[in-house]
Amino acid sequence: MCCFLAAEELQAESKKACLAFCLADPITRVPPPWGAMQHLHKKIPETASKKSQMYGYLLDQEKGLHILPDLLEFQLSLKPDEYELPALDSAWNSGSWEIPGQPLKDHLKDGEEEIET
């Protein structure tokens, strides 16, 4: 009986831990850089800042040269084209909706006769 009660208590604690884990907000962490990536992680920002200090005046000059041109003014056509509906087909006015012609079985028999000859 003691084993059964202990197992039941462990199961209840396990369910509580599982529920707490499922309801917790996800936590993502970036793994720390190592090896060559650790070296590049430090080197790239240093190189970028040095180059921006050395050649920053060139970037400022290029920004000054790029002036946007004025856009042309034109009139917009907001009136839609006129559209005429086509005339109604006579089949809509007729009372019978049957398609004139031969039945499907007769049509299939006609095709068999052409193949045999």
Rank of each mutant, 00 (worst) to 15 (best):
L71A: 04
D60F: 00
S94I: 13
L10K: 05
C3T: 14
K15P: 04
L78I: 13
G56W: 01
W92T: 12
H41D: 08
C2T: 15
A6I: 15
P32W: 00
K16G: 02
L108S: 02
A87T: 07
Q53C: 09
K79P: 14
S94H: 02
C18Q: 06
F4G: 15
L58Q: 02
L108R: 05
I115A: 12
Q11C: 14
F4C: 15
M1F: 13
E113P: 06
E73N: 06
A17L: 14
E13L: 12
L108P: 00
L78K: 01
S49M: 09
Q38C: 12
E8T: 13
K43Q: 09
Y57W: 13
D70Q: 03
P33R: 00
H41Q: 05
P80C: 07
F4K: 08
M54P: 07
V30K: 02
K79F: 09
H39W: 12
T117F: 05
Q53G: 10
D106C: 06
I115H: 02
P103G: 12
C18T: 08
D60L: 00
L5P: 01
L72R: 03
H66M: 07
T117G: 12
A87K: 05
T117K: 07
G101E: 04
M54E: 08
L85Q: 06
S94W: 06
